[in-house]
Design a protein around this nucleic acid. Sequence first.
DNA 1: CTCCCTGTTTATTCTCGAAA
DNA 2: TTTCGAGAATAAACAGGGAG
Length: 352
Amino acid sequence: MVALRTEITEIVTGLAMLGFRDLDEALRVRPMSVVNLETEHYERLTDARASGSHDREFETAWENGHIFARADDGLRGRPPWSIEWKGPHKPPGYEQVPADLRIDHVYLVSCKYGSSILHNVSPSHLFDRALAEKRVERGSDWFVSTAPSAYQELYTACLVDTGLDRDYRALPALAADLETSDRKRLKAALPKRGRLPDKSQQLYEQFSMAVATASADRWRSSLRTAREREAMLWRLLRLQAAPYFVLGATTSGEPLRYRVGTPWDFRNRFELKSFDAWPESAGQPMVRWRAAVLDRDLARDVDNDAAVGDELCVIEGHVEIRWTHGRFSGAPEAKVHLDTHPHRVPGYFPLT
DNA sequence: CTCCCTGTTTATTCTCGAAA
DNA sequence: TTTCGAGAATAAACAGGGAG
C-alpha cells in the first residue's frame, strides 16, 4: 500500500498537534479543521488503525506531531489555528519546500519515512548545473556524453550475448542511436536482474567506473569557486529561503525530528571548508561526496579547552547514477543519498 | 506560411519496494 | 546495506490540423 502509509504518517502527524489525549480520541472526533482532510481519509485511517497493519507508523507519527507541538523550536505548546494537509498532489513548478503539512500558514512540515534520498534528478541537472536551474536537455543521454566508448562497448557486448546482433530486425549499431522500442527489446533479452554474462559483466564494471569518473570530474569542474561549492551544499541539503521541519523516521524506524535552517542560519554558525566528489567502484556508477564544515561554536570552545579537530563536521553522501527502469531502459537519473545521520548535519537542527 | 489549439508521446521526477 | 527495479504523476516536447 503505497499511498496508505504516506497518508497515515502525514495526517497522524498533523492530528497529533491538535491537543487530543491520544490518537484514538482524535480518530473518534474526526476534527474537520484540517484542510483537505475528508471523511474518506478518516475511514481509511480508522480501518488501518483497526487492522494493526501500520502500528509502528501510527505510533511514530503521533509522537512526532506531539513533540513538535511542544518543542521550543516548534509550536511551544500553542494550539494551532490551522493545519493544512497538502494531500496527494504533486505541486507544479520547481524546488518547492518539500512540505506535506502547513501549520498556521507558517510552519512547514515535511514527513519523511524510511528514505535517505535527498534528490532524484537527471544527471546533468546535478553534475553540470549544480541543481540550480531547471532546464531540460532532451536528446542527450548522460551515458553517451560521459562514457561514450565504454557505453558503446557494453552495448555491443550485450548485443552479442543476447544474439540480437544476428536478429534480422537489427538494432542500431551505435548505442547512441537506441530508440525506445530498441531499448525494450534489448532489456527483455537481457537477464532480469543480477549479473550479466561474463564478458558483458566485465564491460559493465568498466562502464560504471567510466561514468562515475566522468560524472565526478564534471561535477568538480562545475564547482570552481568556494561560492559555488557552498551553494551546491545548500541545494543538496535542501536548505531553503524559509526554514521548515522534517518529522519522520530513518530506514530502521528510528524517529527523525529536525528543523532545516536557511542558508543564512548555516552561515551564522558554519563555514564550508571543502567539498569533494570522487568516483567509487561499485556495481553501478556511483559518485561519493563529502563536505567538511567548520562549526564556529565548537571552534570557540577549542580556544578554551576542547580538543583541536572536533570542530570540523563531515557530511557524507553518495549519488547513484542509473537507468530509471532497468538496464538500457529509461533515461539515466541521479539519486542523491545522504549517508550522515540528519541530526548530525550542519544546517539541520534537531528538535529538543 | 504562421500561429494557435489540441491531443499524444516522452522525459523527468517522485514514490516506494525487493532481491542480493 | 547496497544494488537494482517499477508505477504513477506531471510537464515539456511534439505533431498535426485548421484558421487567418
